[in-house]
């Protein structure tokens, strides 16, 4: 999962859906811990398109 910090509006929606709890919102950015399996759940809920699977930019 590729995170584009400059497209993020730090709303926290993605944090709620990551099945492996890899996403954490620190005030104005998202930190992704290792272990992502590109399930795409965070991409679906991101209102601004800041999270994109590398295969589907």
């Amino acid at each position: 999962m590729e995170y584009k910090a400059d497209k993020c509006g730090y709303c926290g929606a993605c944090v709620a859906v990551c099945p492996h709890e890899l996403l954490k919102q620190v005030e104005n950015q998202i930190i992704i811990t290792e272990g992502c399996d590109d399930c795409g759940k965070c991409t679906i809920v991101c209102p601004l398109g800041a999270l994109n699977s590398e295969e589907c930019p």
Binding site: G12, A16, E21, K41, L48
Partner: peptide, 25 residues
């Protein structure tokens, strides 16, 4: 709020299905 790390740390909730989160702008 919606991200609620606290409920998961306390073992009261699991990550949500994207179908149950309304994405807003």
């Amino acid at each position: 709020g919606v991200e609620s790390n606290m409920t998961r740390l306390a073992g009261l909730d699991n990550p949500k299905n994207p179908k149950d989160i309304c994405s807003c702008a």
